[in-house]
Design a protein around this nucleic acid. Sequence first.
RNA 1: GCUCCCAUCGUCUAGAGGCCUAGGACACUUCCCUUUCACGGAGGCGACGGCGAUUCGAAUUCGCCUGGGAGUACCA
Length: 510
Amino acid sequence: MNWLVVFLLCRKLRNLKGNIMSEVRVRIAPSPSGNLHIGTARTALFNYLFAKKNNGKFILRIEDTDAERTSQEYIDNIFDSLKALGLNWDEGPDVGGDYGPYTQSQRFDIYPKYAQILLDKGFAYECFCTPEELEQEKHEATQNKKAYVYSKKCVNLTEDEKAKLRAEGRKPALRFNIEKAQKAFHDSSILKFTDMVKGELHIDTDLLGDFVIMKSNGTPTYNFAVVIDDMLMKMTHVIRGEDHISNTFKQILIFEALGAEVPQFGHLGMILAPDRSKLSKRHGATAVSEFLEKGYLTEALVNFVALLGWSPSDGEELKTVDEIAQDFRIHELSSSNSIFEYDKLNWMNAQYIKKYSDEELGEKLKPYLTQYNLDELTHEQFIRMIEVTREPLKLLSDITDAVPYFFGEGVTIDADAQTKVLDTEVSQDVLKTFMEQAKDWEWTEENLHEKLEAFRGFYKEKGIKPKVTMWAIRVAVTGRTCGADMTAILAIIGKEKSFNRIKAAMKAKV
RNA sequence: GCUCCCAUCGUCUAGAGGCCUAGGACACUUCCCUUUCACGGAGGCGACGGCGAUUCGAAUUCGCCUGGGAGUACCA
């Protein structure tokens, strides 16, 4: 019976080890050279969903290697946007973690050590070429209509030659020896890997060209820093945009040269503008923070962006992040690009707006009402105003234009409404009659509702459509032909203000 | 130029050889509801880029073409 115990123990141990080994770790690694882009947000979301679904960790790493383009403002924007979207990270610059620091510029002392390892193993070599020499090579390549690949002229420099170049004051960059690495780990020059969303991808590494891993100023290039960080941070899966596919081949070779475990890759299609070009400022908002300012709800933004590539198995598209995570399978993501169209986002935003109570929505709407003196209304009136104006809102900011007539004394009459409605005899008659009858009305919404119904009935008998009757009052009081429920408007702004506006509308014509 | 990726309604997508006279959502549109605008409800319009091949049978497999996207830096 002993063997059975041993067997079970072994199996348990193996499973345990398997679980530890396979703890999913994914990351989003934005470069703070701009505000958090909506495309980056989607990549972050898919990473987050993948981590959630697999009980893994979601890590934030700031790739600020390029000091020129980095700014604290952008870093803050990235943090805030990610947090706003609810994509909270388990490890990152602010929360720390076991594999920090999580800001690349604070890791500069790490990279040379690994560069040295590659140098020692012969997978990297010093390159003393000047920018001018390199430019010349490229120029010749284009002249001869050939694809540019670095000439490798520094690959076999002797120690003497290097010493001489150094004496000239030249500082070498470090290049990765593609051919050497490829030959060491693969049968042919073809490098393959299985992408989680696109399937098998391959390239002929002879076409790649030895790329720089350490710049002559001692800082790492992107492709090198990413590999070192992903390796040291124990990333198991790398989910990113397909614009990184060509980098992936280079990175795989570095992982292999370092003897590190190569993570699984998954490349997402890009988000394109309606004209099928890259989504940029000229197409409108690109940063998450801009969308938020415009009045998009984070729930809608996240939900919408998830639908660019992912689709729900039950057909229900309105879903929370948690619900999406449950239903998320990376292998089922669409591998093609998708176009960012506002129509559906707007519709979705409206759907999420509807989910809020009047009180909650009122709070969210206040930032868009700063131009009005909210003190003119009691809290009850304010809430009632929200209640009767919220229906057509697609963006939170739509509220701004929906409520001007609730504030101030007078009202600007829309030119079209003036000629089409107020200038007609019927309308003037309606207003006159209204003033006569309404002066004795008790000014509560309930009573107004009844009275107005009767009022409409009175005119309907004379062959005037209810629509026409109400339009006269509406235009006089609000200045427009459309808007919230008329009864509510009258009740909220009060008898005096209503009468003043109607009188003004009458005087203007009669 | 070279390399790679992608290809179903206008848009996001379902579809992994017969269930597809291709389903859903947004948009558009018709009608209904209605004090306006809207919301909501019931309909409608609308796609497998092209050509070959495999097969009894292809949106689904393969090849070519076309179209779109990306990469091609001592940027990230």
